[in-house]
Design a protein around this nucleic acid. Sequence first.
DNA 1: TACAATATTGTAACCATTACAATTTTATCT
DNA 2: AGATAAAATTGTAATGGTTACAATATTGTA
Lengths: 148, 148
Amino acid sequence: MNVLEKARQMLKAKAVRPTIIRVRLLAYLLTHPVHPTAEQIYQALLPEFPTLSKTSVYNTLDKMLEVKLVRLITIDEKETRYDAGTAVHGHFFCKFCRKITDFAANPDYTGCQELSGYEITECNVYLTGICKACLQKINKSQEEEKAV
Amino acid sequence: MNVLEKARQMLKAKAVRPTIIRVRLLAYLLTHPVHPTAEQIYQALLPEFPTLSKTSVYNTLDKMLEVKLVRLITIDEKETRYDAGTAVHGHFFCKFCRKITDFAANPDYTGCQELSGYEITECNVYLTGICKACLQKINKSQEEEKAV
DNA sequence: TACAATATTGTAACCATTACAATTTTATCT
DNA sequence: AGATAAAATTGTAATGGTTACAATATTGTA
Protein backbone atom coordinates (compact mmCIF):
# COMPACT_ATOMS: atom_id res chain seq x y z
CA MET A 1 0.00 0.00 0.00
CA ASN A 2 1.48 3.33 -0.98
CA VAL A 3 1.65 6.30 1.32
CA LEU A 4 -1.31 8.08 -0.27
CA GLU A 5 -3.55 5.11 0.38
CA LYS A 6 -2.16 4.89 3.89
CA ALA A 7 -2.92 8.55 4.54
CA ARG A 8 -6.41 8.03 3.15
CA GLN A 9 -6.98 5.12 5.52
CA MET A 10 -5.71 7.10 8.49
CA LEU A 11 -8.08 9.95 7.75
CA LYS A 12 -11.04 7.62 7.26
CA ALA A 13 -10.27 5.86 10.53
CA LYS A 14 -10.61 9.22 12.27
CA ALA A 15 -13.80 10.12 10.38
CA VAL A 16 -12.06 12.98 8.57
CA ARG A 17 -13.16 13.25 4.97
CA PRO A 18 -10.14 12.28 2.86
CA THR A 19 -10.04 15.20 0.45
CA ILE A 20 -7.15 15.47 -1.95
CA ILE A 21 -5.42 18.21 -0.03
CA ARG A 22 -5.75 16.43 3.29
CA VAL A 23 -4.46 13.17 1.86
CA ARG A 24 -1.47 14.82 0.19
CA LEU A 25 -0.65 16.95 3.21
CA LEU A 26 -0.72 13.99 5.57
CA ALA A 27 1.30 11.92 3.09
CA TYR A 28 3.84 14.72 2.94
CA LEU A 29 4.19 14.69 6.72
CA LEU A 30 4.51 10.91 6.76
CA THR A 31 7.24 10.87 4.12
CA HIS A 32 9.05 13.94 5.48
CA PRO A 33 9.46 13.34 9.21
CA VAL A 34 11.57 16.47 9.63
CA HIS A 35 9.01 18.45 11.66
CA PRO A 36 8.28 21.03 8.98
CA THR A 37 6.71 24.43 9.61
CA ALA A 38 3.39 25.46 8.04
CA GLU A 39 5.36 27.55 5.56
CA GLN A 40 7.51 24.59 4.53
CA ILE A 41 4.46 22.41 4.05
CA TYR A 42 2.83 25.14 1.99
CA GLN A 43 5.88 25.53 -0.24
CA ALA A 44 6.20 21.77 -0.68
CA LEU A 45 2.60 21.31 -1.82
CA LEU A 46 2.36 24.45 -3.94
CA PRO A 47 3.74 22.92 -7.17
CA GLU A 48 1.06 20.26 -7.05
CA PHE A 49 -1.76 22.63 -6.00
CA PRO A 50 -1.06 26.03 -7.54
CA THR A 51 -4.20 27.48 -5.96
CA LEU A 52 -3.33 26.24 -2.49
CA SER A 53 -3.69 28.87 0.20
CA LYS A 54 -1.81 29.20 3.44
CA THR A 55 -5.14 29.23 5.25
CA SER A 56 -5.90 25.77 3.88
CA VAL A 57 -2.65 24.47 5.27
CA TYR A 58 -3.53 25.84 8.69
CA ASN A 59 -7.11 24.57 8.46
CA THR A 60 -5.95 21.11 7.45
CA LEU A 61 -3.37 20.96 10.21
CA ASP A 62 -5.93 22.11 12.78
CA LYS A 63 -8.28 19.36 11.66
CA MET A 64 -5.59 16.73 12.03
CA LEU A 65 -4.53 18.09 15.40
CA GLU A 66 -8.11 17.71 16.59
CA VAL A 67 -8.15 14.02 15.80
CA LYS A 68 -4.53 13.57 16.88
CA LEU A 69 -3.13 12.49 13.55
CA VAL A 70 -0.60 15.27 13.99
CA ARG A 71 1.30 16.66 16.95
CA LEU A 72 2.37 20.23 17.62
CA ILE A 73 5.99 20.91 18.41
CA THR A 74 6.58 24.26 20.09
CA ILE A 75 10.25 23.82 20.94
CA ASP A 76 11.21 26.56 18.49
CA GLU A 77 9.61 29.73 19.81
CA LYS A 78 9.86 31.36 16.39
CA GLU A 79 7.42 29.08 14.62
CA THR A 80 5.30 26.05 15.30
CA ARG A 81 6.27 22.75 13.75
CA TYR A 82 4.22 19.68 12.95
CA ASP A 83 4.88 15.97 13.34
CA ALA A 84 2.79 13.08 12.04
CA GLY A 85 4.74 10.53 14.03
CA THR A 86 2.43 8.64 16.34
CA ALA A 87 4.99 7.02 18.60
CA VAL A 88 5.91 9.12 21.62
CA HIS A 89 9.43 10.45 21.36
CA GLY A 90 11.49 13.41 22.50
CA HIS A 91 12.70 16.30 20.38
CA PHE A 92 16.13 17.88 20.40
CA PHE A 93 16.43 21.40 18.97
CA CYS A 94 19.79 22.70 17.78
CA LYS A 95 20.15 26.43 18.45
CA PHE A 96 22.56 26.83 15.53
CA CYS A 97 21.06 24.98 12.58
CA ARG A 98 17.51 25.03 14.06
CA LYS A 99 17.05 21.38 13.06
CA ILE A 100 15.04 19.04 15.24
CA THR A 101 16.24 15.51 16.02
CA ASP A 102 14.06 12.75 17.45
CA PHE A 103 15.19 10.59 20.32
CA ALA A 104 13.66 7.77 22.37
CA ALA A 105 11.69 9.08 25.35
CA ASN A 106 8.56 7.81 26.98
CA PRO A 107 8.36 9.32 30.44
CA ASP A 108 5.74 8.08 32.87
CA TYR A 109 4.23 10.76 35.11
CA THR A 110 1.07 8.91 36.09
CA GLY A 111 2.27 8.66 39.69
CA CYS A 112 3.02 12.33 40.01
CA GLN A 113 1.42 13.84 43.09
CA GLU A 114 1.05 17.38 41.79
CA LEU A 115 -0.97 16.07 38.85
CA SER A 116 -3.35 13.69 40.59
CA GLY A 117 -6.83 14.28 39.23
CA TYR A 118 -5.45 15.93 36.09
CA GLU A 119 -6.28 14.64 32.61
CA ILE A 120 -3.11 14.43 30.53
CA THR A 121 -3.61 14.30 26.78
CA GLU A 122 -0.20 15.22 25.42
CA CYS A 123 3.38 14.75 26.49
CA ASN A 124 6.45 16.45 25.06
CA VAL A 125 10.08 16.22 26.07
CA TYR A 126 12.19 19.00 24.61
CA LEU A 127 15.95 19.25 24.80
CA THR A 128 17.84 22.25 23.47
CA GLY A 129 21.53 22.63 22.74
CA ILE A 130 24.04 22.15 19.95
CA CYS A 131 24.03 19.13 17.67
CA LYS A 132 27.10 17.06 16.83
CA ALA A 133 27.53 18.53 13.36
CA CYS A 134 27.38 22.12 14.58
CA LEU A 135 29.78 21.38 17.45
CA GLN A 136 32.29 20.05 14.93
CA LYS A 137 31.90 23.14 12.74
CA ILE A 138 32.44 25.39 15.75
CA ASN A 139 35.56 23.50 16.85
CA LYS A 140 36.96 23.59 13.35
CA SER A 141 36.55 27.35 12.96
CA GLN A 142 38.15 27.92 16.37
CA GLU A 143 41.19 25.90 15.32
CA GLU A 144 41.47 27.94 12.15
CA GLU A 145 41.40 31.14 14.18
CA LYS A 146 44.24 29.86 16.33
CA ALA A 147 46.26 28.93 13.27
CA VAL A 148 46.00 32.54 12.02
CA MET B 1 17.78 39.33 52.91
CA ASN B 2 14.81 40.68 50.98
CA VAL B 3 14.00 39.64 47.45
CA LEU B 4 15.36 42.82 45.87
CA GLU B 5 18.73 42.26 47.46
CA LYS B 6 18.60 38.63 46.40
CA ALA B 7 17.85 39.61 42.80
CA ARG B 8 20.70 42.09 42.90
CA GLN B 9 23.10 39.40 44.11
CA MET B 10 21.95 36.99 41.42
CA LEU B 11 22.57 39.58 38.71
CA LYS B 12 25.99 40.48 40.07
CA ALA B 13 26.97 36.82 40.25
CA LYS B 14 26.27 36.60 36.53
CA ALA B 15 28.11 39.83 35.77
CA VAL B 16 24.91 41.56 34.68
CA ARG B 17 24.78 45.16 35.83
CA PRO B 18 22.00 45.32 38.43
CA THR B 19 20.02 48.27 37.15
CA ILE B 20 16.75 49.14 38.85
CA ILE B 21 14.60 47.67 36.12
CA ARG B 22 16.56 44.43 35.97
CA VAL B 23 16.46 44.01 39.74
CA ARG B 24 12.72 44.68 39.92
CA LEU B 25 11.91 42.48 36.98
CA LEU B 26 13.89 39.55 38.36
CA ALA B 27 12.38 40.12 41.81
CA TYR B 28 8.94 40.07 40.21
CA LEU B 29 9.66 36.72 38.58
CA LEU B 30 11.03 35.31 41.84
CA THR B 31 7.98 36.37 43.83
CA HIS B 32 5.46 35.44 41.12
CA PRO B 33 6.36 31.93 39.99
CA VAL B 34 3.30 31.71 37.74
CA HIS B 35 5.21 31.72 34.43
CA PRO B 36 4.04 35.16 33.30
CA THR B 37 4.08 36.38 29.72
CA ALA B 38 6.07 39.45 28.66
CA GLU B 39 2.81 41.40 28.60
CA GLN B 40 1.95 40.37 32.16
CA ILE B 41 5.40 41.37 33.39
CA TYR B 42 5.07 44.70 31.60
CA GLN B 43 1.66 45.40 33.17
CA ALA B 44 2.90 44.40 36.60
CA LEU B 45 5.89 46.75 36.53
CA LEU B 46 4.16 49.67 34.82
CA PRO B 47 2.75 51.30 38.01
CA GLU B 48 6.26 51.47 39.43
CA PHE B 49 7.93 52.57 36.18
CA PRO B 50 5.45 54.69 34.24
CA THR B 51 7.95 55.17 31.41
CA LEU B 52 8.68 51.46 31.07
CA SER B 53 8.59 50.22 27.50
CA LYS B 54 7.72 46.78 26.22
CA THR B 55 11.06 46.70 24.46
CA SER B 56 12.85 47.04 27.80
CA VAL B 57 10.97 44.05 29.14
CA TYR B 58 12.07 41.99 26.15
CA ASN B 59 15.64 43.31 26.34
CA THR B 60 15.86 42.54 30.04
CA LEU B 61 14.43 39.07 29.60
CA ASP B 62 16.84 38.36 26.73
CA LYS B 63 19.75 39.42 28.91
CA MET B 64 18.65 37.09 31.68
CA LEU B 65 18.05 34.23 29.27
CA GLU B 66 21.64 34.61 28.04
CA VAL B 67 23.05 34.11 31.52
CA LYS B 68 20.39 31.51 32.41
CA LEU B 69 18.77 33.37 35.25
CA VAL B 70 15.51 32.82 33.39
CA ARG B 71 14.07 29.95 31.37
CA LEU B 72 11.79 30.10 28.34
CA ILE B 73 8.57 28.12 28.40
CA THR B 74 7.08 27.53 24.97
CA ILE B 75 4.32 25.10 25.95
CA ASP B 76 1.66 27.66 25.02
CA GLU B 77 2.07 28.27 21.31
CA LYS B 78 0.21 31.59 21.62
CA GLU B 79 2.83 33.36 23.69
CA THR B 80 6.14 32.70 25.34
CA ARG B 81 6.31 32.53 29.09
CA TYR B 82 9.19 33.08 31.49
CA ASP B 83 10.30 31.26 34.61
CA ALA B 84 13.00 32.31 37.07
CA GLY B 85 12.94 28.98 38.88
CA THR B 86 16.34 27.37 38.76
CA ALA B 87 15.40 23.84 39.78
CA VAL B 88 14.51 21.58 36.86
CA HIS B 89 10.83 20.75 36.81
CA GLY B 90 8.11 19.87 34.37
CA HIS B 91 5.25 22.09 33.22
CA PHE B 92 1.63 21.13 32.81
CA PHE B 93 -0.51 23.36 30.57
CA CYS B 94 -4.29 23.38 30.95
CA LYS B 95 -6.02 23.86 27.62
CA PHE B 96 -9.06 25.45 29.29
CA CYS B 97 -7.76 27.98 31.80
CA ARG B 98 -4.31 28.23 30.11
CA LYS B 99 -2.62 28.09 33.51
CA ILE B 100 0.70 26.33 33.93
CA THR B 101 1.37 24.02 36.88
CA ASP B 102 4.82 22.84 37.94
CA PHE B 103 5.55 19.23 38.74
CA ALA B 104 8.60 17.24 39.75
CA ALA B 105 10.55 15.98 36.75
CA ASN B 106 14.22 15.51 36.21
CA PRO B 107 14.71 13.17 33.29
CA ASP B 108 18.15 11.81 32.51
CA TYR B 109 18.95 11.47 28.82
CA THR B 110 22.73 11.34 29.11
CA GLY B 111 22.74 7.71 27.98
CA CYS B 112 20.62 8.35 24.91
CA GLN B 113 22.21 6.90 21.76
CA GLU B 114 20.67 9.33 19.28
CA LEU B 115 22.16 12.24 21.18
CA SER B 116 25.70 11.01 21.75
CA GLY B 117 28.11 13.83 20.95
CA TYR B 118 25.35 16.44 21.38
CA GLU B 119 25.66 19.29 23.85
CA ILE B 120 22.44 19.65 25.83
CA THR B 121 21.91 23.00 27.53
CA GLU B 122 18.20 22.97 28.31
CA CYS B 123 15.60 20.38 29.16
CA ASN B 124 11.83 20.85 29.23
CA VAL B 125 9.09 18.36 29.94
CA TYR B 126 5.69 19.61 28.84
CA LEU B 127 2.38 17.94 29.56
CA THR B 128 -0.89 19.24 28.17
CA GLY B 129 -4.43 18.41 29.19
CA ILE B 130 -7.15 19.55 31.57
CA CYS B 131 -6.45 20.50 35.18
CA LYS B 132 -8.44 19.23 38.14
CA ALA B 133 -10.37 22.47 38.64
CA CYS B 134 -11.45 22.66 34.99
CA LEU B 135 -12.45 19.00 34.95
CA GLN B 136 -14.73 19.63 37.92
CA LYS B 137 -16.28 22.65 36.23
CA ILE B 138 -16.92 20.60 33.10
CA ASN B 139 -18.49 17.75 35.04
CA LYS B 140 -20.67 20.15 36.97
CA SER B 141 -22.01 21.88 33.87
CA GLN B 142 -22.76 18.51 32.27
CA GLU B 143 -24.81 17.48 35.28
CA GLU B 144 -26.76 20.71 35.10
CA GLU B 145 -27.53 20.07 31.46
CA LYS B 146 -28.87 16.63 32.31
CA ALA B 147 -31.04 18.11 35.10
CA VAL B 148 -32.67 20.45 32.56
C1' DT C 1 32.22 67.60 36.11
C1' DA C 2 33.13 65.34 31.54
C1' DC C 3 33.32 61.40 28.83
C1' DA C 4 32.43 56.90 27.10
C1' DA C 5 29.89 52.88 27.58
C1' DT C 6 25.69 50.91 28.53
C1' DA C 7 20.68 50.84 29.27
C1' DT C 8 16.16 52.42 28.18
C1' DT C 9 12.64 54.27 25.29
C1' DG C 10 9.39 55.09 21.29
C1' DT C 11 8.15 54.16 16.79
C1' DA C 12 7.59 51.48 13.17
C1' DA C 13 8.13 47.21 10.98
C1' DC C 14 7.98 42.16 10.73
C1' DC C 15 5.77 37.95 10.20
C1' DA C 16 3.30 33.79 11.82
C1' DT C 17 -1.27 33.00 12.57
C1' DT C 18 -6.31 33.86 12.49
C1' DA C 19 -11.06 35.81 11.14
C1' DC C 20 -14.30 35.92 7.90
C1' DA C 21 -16.90 36.20 3.82
C1' DA C 22 -16.90 34.46 -0.92
C1' DT C 23 -16.21 30.69 -3.87
C1' DT C 24 -15.61 25.97 -5.02
C1' DT C 25 -16.02 21.16 -4.25
C1' DT C 26 -18.20 17.11 -2.41
C1' DA C 27 -21.88 13.81 -0.94
C1' DT C 28 -26.59 12.74 -1.16
C1' DC C 29 -31.14 12.60 -2.89
C1' DT C 30 -34.41 12.58 -6.55
C1' DA D 1 -27.39 13.01 -14.54
C1' DG D 2 -29.06 17.30 -12.20
C1' DA D 3 -30.36 19.82 -7.93
C1' DT D 4 -29.40 20.88 -3.30
C1' DA D 5 -27.21 21.32 1.06
C1' DA D 6 -23.17 20.67 3.66
C1' DA D 7 -18.43 20.92 3.91
C1' DA D 8 -13.91 22.39 2.19
C1' DT D 9 -11.01 25.77 0.14
C1' DT D 10 -9.56 30.32 -1.03
C1' DG D 11 -8.23 35.40 -0.78
C1' DT D 12 -7.91 39.38 1.75
C1' DA D 13 -7.32 41.82 5.58
C1' DA D 14 -6.55 42.07 10.38
C1' DT D 15 -4.38 40.62 14.78
C1' DG D 16 -0.85 40.60 18.02
C1' DG D 17 3.55 39.03 19.90
C1' DT D 18 8.11 40.15 18.96
C1' DT D 19 12.06 42.64 16.95
C1' DA D 20 14.95 46.48 14.60
C1' DC D 21 16.76 50.64 15.13
C1' DA D 22 17.73 55.27 16.07
C1' DA D 23 17.18 58.67 19.77
C1' DT D 24 17.45 59.62 24.53
C1' DA D 25 18.73 58.84 29.25
C1' DT D 26 21.51 56.74 32.72
C1' DT D 27 25.55 54.80 34.69
C1' DG D 28 30.52 54.04 35.93
C1' DT D 29 34.99 55.97 35.74
C1' DA D 30 38.58 59.28 35.33
